[in-house]
């Protein structure tokens, strides 16, 4: 997740199975914890933690996926581009 931000991603959404319905039992719960960690780190280093988001979705729920994607899109548009990208450009 952090690498994606390092490379310039404006936002990262992690989509896991519905809670209690994970093929890897608790994988989705651990993923959520990771996302929370990443949010904390992003806040610490001066990026917005909200750029990383965890969603739970069942594989057949297309409309909800669309809703989440739109939500994420709007969130990121409000935040603007990842400052890392600009810095990188300046450096280049």
């Amino acid at each position: 997740m952090l690498r994606a931000f390092e490379k310039g991603a404006d936002g990262v959404s992690i989509i896991g199975c519905m809670e209690g319905d994970c093929h890897y039992k608790t994988g989705n719960l651990r993923a959520r914890k990771r996302v929370e960690q990443v949010q904390k780190i992003l806040n610490t280093i001066g990026l917005e933690g909200e750029r990383a988001q965890m969603y739970n979705l069942s594989s057949s729920d297309g409309p909800l996926f669309v809703k989440y994607a739109q939500e994420m899109d709007e969130r990121i548009r409000n935040l603007g581009p990842n400052p890392m990208k600009k810095k990188k450009k300046n450096a280049a």
Binding site: L2, Q37, I41, L47, P83, K87, N90
Partner: peptide, 16 residues
């Protein structure tokens, strides 16, 4: 994780 966080920290501060 720590190395990545530090890289972004420096980049964000403009340490080229």
């Amino acid at each position: 994780v720590l190395a990545s966080a530090l890289r972004m920290y420096f980049a964000n501060r403009g340490v080229e």
